[in-house]
Computed example of a mutant assay.
Amino acid sequence: MSAVTPEPPARSPLTVSDVSEDDLLALIFPLLPAGADTVLGPGDDAAIVRAPDGRVVVSTDVLVEDRHFRRDWSSGEDVGWRAAVQNLADIAAMGARPTSVVVTLVAPGDLPVEWVTGFARGLAAACGPAGVGVVGGDLSGGDRVVVTVAVHGDLGGRAPVLRSGARAGDVVAHAGVRGRSAAGLALLLAGHADAAPELVRAYLRPDPPLAAGPAAALAGATAMLDVSDGLLRDAGRIARASGVVLDLDAVATALPDDLAAVGAAAALLGASAAEWVLTGGEDHGLLATFPAGADLPAPFRRIGRARTVGPDARGGVLVDGEPPAVGTTGWDHFAR
């Protein structure tokens, strides 16, 4: 009888505490896209990025482990993608083209190096096709994973599209999907991720229509923002900034495809598909207003109209002429 060769002991994955900062950066840098506007990328104390317009559009956002994502649900690639696109959407919502990002990663010592390189690949997958360079950032140790991204953009000679420009009579329009991310999160929380993998992916890797932002600016959009905290909450921000009421059409009329996409998941969980569509966050679509009669650029679709308010009113949101009949208006970072 031949001897049985014993299996070699399983090797523990290499973690952040096993390598130096320089070693980790050496693994990350080759994975990152340079970007069309990058003059000098990572490696020096600062990067240099062209600003052809002469003005730089800047935004930043943060993801905190166990607050915005969980590692048992999200791979490094997922978090890298999500961290990038939620910032790129902010630039698109100003009518600008994103050009570069800088990234800070706080990593606990037991975080696998493979997770970190996956994070870099996720950044690259989101930024590379858009011509956006990942041009630098910082690494630090900490008790949990924290990601911050600062993004820069170029207006291309156009005026920025602000939240405050909507006027009574404007058409309200939306580009992108609604409710998918909220449905995916609900499925994960309920342990039913396998019931609708496409909705779970919409939560883990939202895919906003970034090109629609500059297209909306060229088409004469009067106001615009990234819908990150829910349609009702973010519509209210435009309404208050502009001093108007945004009267949204009935959900079944305005957003039937979105209702249909999340309907089965809502039925499974005993939830409201309409509430996900109206209040669910993190799909990162674009909400905009356009002058009456304007040709809406694809993929914008009309979902309502801006109306006048009294001289002392702060503005607000209606659905089919009535106050929204939902329990919440959307995501609040400080709510319990």
Rank of each mutant, 00 (worst) to 15 (best):
G179F: 02
G43M: 12
T148K: 05
H333I: 14
S242N: 03
V116C: 00
Q86V: 06
W331A: 06
H68I: 13
T148L: 08
D247S: 07
D194W: 12
T15N: 13
D247E: 10
A36L: 12
G156D: 14
A84P: 00
D234Q: 13
R307Q: 11
L286K: 09
V145H: 02
V134A: 04
A183R: 04
V161C: 10
L232K: 08
A183D: 03
A190F: 04
V319A: 04
D143V: 15
P311C: 14
P208W: 05
H284M: 12
G316M: 10
G179A: 10
A260Y: 09
D312R: 13
G191H: 11
G243S: 10
D143P: 13
A260F: 12
D257Y: 14
A124C: 14
M224S: 13
G136A: 10
L105Y: 05
V309E: 07
A125F: 00
A202R: 07
A215I: 01
A107W: 04
A265G: 08
A313L: 07
G153A: 10
T99G: 09
M1I: 15
R201I: 03
E77T: 04
A335P: 05
P129T: 00
S100V: 09
G330C: 07
F334E: 13
V145W: 01
R167N: 10
S242R: 10
E114R: 14
L278A: 01
P291H: 11
T308W: 07
L225G: 11
V19T: 08
L188E: 11
D66Y: 06
A215V: 01
H174Q: 12
L210V: 07
G165W: 04
P209K: 09
E114G: 07
A217I: 09
G327K: 13
G156Q: 12
S20E: 04
A107G: 09
V132H: 04
G263H: 12
V49Q: 01
